[in-house]
Design a protein around this nucleic acid. Structure first.
Lengths: 209, 209
DNA sequence: TCTAAATTAGAATGATTATTCTAATTTAGA
DNA sequence: TCTAAATTAGAATAATCATTCTAATTTAGA
């Protein structure tokens, strides 16, 4: 893996350059309104050069999404595996996601609008592949939760639904943070999210009669 | 308001027909991949006729979104106002939203992908207007929560953050329900969402030491 | 029934843009 | 230094639509 001549190394660097530039543009203007000419311009490559690296605009977009998503997932998996209790695992998961997106705002915009955008969904392949990625993420969540229920750390609610709920909360927190130019770092909200998730928002009046 | 001659009534009906057809198509293929020719075809109007009713494709799209969203919001406002305690209000809100989207799946697809799609965001006007709508929704949530905190029914967490979290949960529940062709009605999940929201998912071990 | 105004259908227009092509330019190795 | 192969730039191509135009067709009211 590490054996790459200068040639190949430079090629990879250029490829990455294209992806980085494209990421910024796609995040800014969305897939449809970003033109290849713009990507070529901004990356200072010619059109034909782009096609040397990627067979189509869609493929640039998709490569972008999958590579970064894989990266995020493997970070999460690693972080989660370090802990034993479900609460710690969930905390690690949220923390990792927040940190990651704090460093990759542009990517989050693409990630979230793709994930919610039904634009592809129908379209074979692309939409399918993206959806599978997200499924994997939900599954990871769901597994942690199921384990937590078995360990009697988590209430025996429907694990899939908890997973949806949590994923939604995470996305929403990040989304709002990106939308409003707030100074407070995203990670300062981790604790609030976890409190809300673990303890709920109600002040319990011992009314479990 | 009710005084409309046949002429005007028919015109309104045709307008609505266009919006309905467009809704289905936009939900299916997204804004960019839906062509006016398709809308004309499906609604059995000519191109020029569409332009008689709406000045542009964008305007059809936006009209669609705002009209239905206003409709949803006013339902929610009405439902919420019937209750006193914050918990009941939140329950009414979730119930209304779930019921509404259960009946308007197509619209939800558009709503959610627009709300998360940064595609417009940059674009003046449209993106702005859509965002304001969503802000209003978040504000409604936030107000209920603030009131609940004052009434000591809800923990004194950051109200805006709770609002984001809850909105995210709601969206995520609906989203998953639409994605997977599940037989179980959406409303059957209301209670689970509320439990999760109110009580949290942790089994408390009286460990508040 | 007749006619001017309103409405409509569908073709023409014009702009945009992904992709391909052509002709340099650069590179690596002799 | 030389040259064949690889790489590149940027123009040409071809397709896709949103929008506008033209010529019917329909309507309302006399």
């Amino acid at each position: 893996m590490e054996k790459m001549g200068r040639r190949e190394r430079e090629r990879q660097a250029r490829r990455q350059e294209i992806l980085d530039v494209a990421e910024k543009l796609f995040a800014q203007k969305g897939f449809f309104k970003t033109t290849l000419a713009e990507i070529a311009d901004a990356s200072e490559f010619g059109m034909a050069t782009l096609y040397q690296f990627f067979p189509s605009k869609e493929e640039i977009y998709f490569t972008l999404i999958t590579e970064k998503t894989e990266q995020l997932f493997s970070l999460i998996e690693k972080a989660v595996s370090r802990f034993d209790s479900s609460m710690d695992k969930l905390k690690a998961l949220v923390t990792t996601a927040f940190n990651f997106f704090e460093d990759h705002r542009d990517f989050f915009k693409i990630f979230i609008s793709e994930r919610s955008g039904f634009e592809w969904m129908a379209k074979e392949d692309l939409g399918l592949r993206i959806n599978q990625l997200y499924e994997r993420y939900l599954m990871m969540l769901q597994n942690i939760i199921e384990e937590g229920i078995n360990r009697k750390e988590i209430r025996p609610l429907n694990p899939a639904e908890i997973a949806y709920g949590l994923a939604g909360m995470i996305n929403s927190f990040i989304f709002q943070w990106i939308l409003k130019p707030v100074k407070r770092p995203l990670k300062s909200r981790i604790q609030n999210l976890l409190t809300m998730l673990f303890e709920g928002i109600a002040i319990s009046h011992k009314k479990n009669a």
